[in-house]
């Protein structure tokens, strides 16, 4: 593979996941064991119920909190295994208890501190949303780390919301399995947030006009806007060709006393949830188109795909998956 930053990469066999990993039962079972049965996984942000549950690749995670103590189990049919639970700020992660392996801080590196800082904005939670995709979870991870489909897939939503010169402003950091991209918001979009801020006095973790996207292997990403709103996302595998994208909007305000303020916050949150849902509804058909297309070229070894300058995070993910599955030579 060439490493020149401005050139595209045509990966060699062994440098990307075999196509069949995107639809076979064998691969799904292997991931269930080696990825979802082992890695640190994002579970959510605790609320008054002190309960968190998640279902990934047929594994059911159940967590509860008593005071500062957190405990939980992973149920796999009859089999019940204890969980190790840890937090990064307000973000709760868990993994099936095991000897060795990275600590949560190591797993999140180098984004632990930043995530903790951003998670202070996990206030005023809105109801979680789940959107079903007829696609393998990895096709959705590829989609979310693809930094250049805005103009074709989101021409009326994201594309106009980011700065017209987004190409020169886009900053991507890659650290192996984890990575981060940030876009400068368009002036109009930043102005919209500024007006919102004037009314809501949002809590801001940074005075920035960015849309940030921080990905944590294997299936978590945190989107933030204007240094204020945070939206944790998790891609839950349901079957080899079905997944659910789960996300939750936090619109952190410091002004929620009067009925009028509450009503404004509510309607703004509803608007933001609707906007985010519209964007996800635009991504769904392309993820599903890839799910349909990939098996159609799997018999042709020369068709390996090609990864441009702003798609490197995807290959990083493939390589992290290969390492996690123990398939790297």
């Amino acid at each position: 593979m060439s490493a020149h930053p401005a050139r595209s990469v045509i990966p060699e066999t062994g440098a990307f996941l075999p196509h069949s990993h995107f639809w076979t039962e064998e691969a799904f079972a292997q991931e269930r064991e080696r990825v979802f049965g082992r890695c640190w996984l994002y579970m959510g942000v605790f609320d008054d119920t002190n309960l968190l549950t998640a279902e990934m690749a047929g594994l059911r995670f159940e967590l509860h909190r008593r005071g500062e103590a957190m405990e939980g189990v992973c149920r796999d049919g009859e089999r019940v295994r204890p969980l190790q639970i840890d937090r990064c700020g307000a973000l709760v992660f868990a993994r099936v208890a095991q000897e060795g392996g990275p600590t949560l801080a190591q797993h999140l590196a180098p984004y632990g501190e930043r995530l903790a800082m951003m998670s202070a904005n996990c206030l005023n939670p809105q109801p979680p949303v789940g959107i079903a995709f007829q696609a393998n979870w990895k096709a959705m991870v590829e989609n979310t780390m693809d930094d250049f489909h805005g103009s074709t897939v989101h021409p009326d939503t994201i594309h106009p919301a980011v700065h017209p010169d987004w190409q020169n402003h886009l900053v991507t950091e890659r650290h192996g399995a984890n990575s981060d991209s940030r876009w400068l918001l368009a002036d109009g979009t930043a102005g919209w947030w500024a007006k919102l801020d004037a009314k809501l006095r949002m809590r801001r973790f940074a005075l920035e006009s960015f849309y940030r996207h921080t990905f944590i292997f294997p299936n978590f990403y945190l989107a933030t806007f204007y240094g204020a709103t945070v939206i944790p996302h998790r891609v839950d595998p349901v079957a080899s060709d079905a997944s659910i994208l789960r996300w939750q909007l936090f619109l952190p305000t410091t002004r929620l006393e009067t009925a009028r303020e509450q009503a404004f916050h509510r309607s703004t949150a509803a608007y933001l949830i609707e906007s985010a849902s519209t964007v996800i509804a635009e991504d769904r058909p392309v993820c599903e188109a890839v799910q349909q297309g990939r098996p159609g070229i799997a018999d042709l070894p020369h068709i390996t795909g090609i990864y441009g300058r702003r798609e490197r995070r995807i290959l990083d993910f493939h390589q992290a998956m290969l390492r996690q599955l123990g398939e790297m030579a």
Partner: peptide, 14 residues
Amino acid sequence: FRNVCTHRFAVIHG
């Protein structure tokens, strides 16, 4: 042709 994009495998015409 195969109705599959050679970039990253999306079905071209749905």
